[in-house]
Amino acid sequence: MDVAKDAVAAAGGIGRQRAAGLLAKATKDELKAAWDALADKPGVRPVRGPETGLVMVRGSIGGGGAPFNLGEATVTRATVLLASGTAGHAQALGTSKEKVRLQAIFDALWQEGATQAWVEAALLTPVEARLAEEDRRRADETAATRVDFFTMVRGED
């Protein structure tokens, strides 16, 4: 629960930024499962969207120099209002409107003291663990393709 407390302390800042990032990376199935598991479902009113549009992806010249426009990506976004009055925003790559609508609901629920710990435990922590495991696995698979150079020694020493 410490995580949740820290998150409350930083609400609107780093904590929500982290939560929003994890929600964006949650799959539709993960979000759907969490919604189904939520005992006390809030009333939800759509404010904007879900709608799909484009975000221009920028790169930097040379990797760290001036920005340039690399190309666009499809992004879906949504804003919802809970019956309690809390607004939730969400955006994620892709065109899945249902995923992003659920994301926005959980963004709102995360901001409410009563449900934040539940969202952490039922959704954010498992998503974070899944991502960490996937990253670890891919990093290990890549590490196995690292070249170990050895020097050929000619003649006798």
Partner: peptide
Amino acid sequence: TLPRFGVSVPLDTA
């Protein structure tokens, strides 16, 4: 056919 929502923060390839 799609509207543009905005521009990203430059990718950090490092």
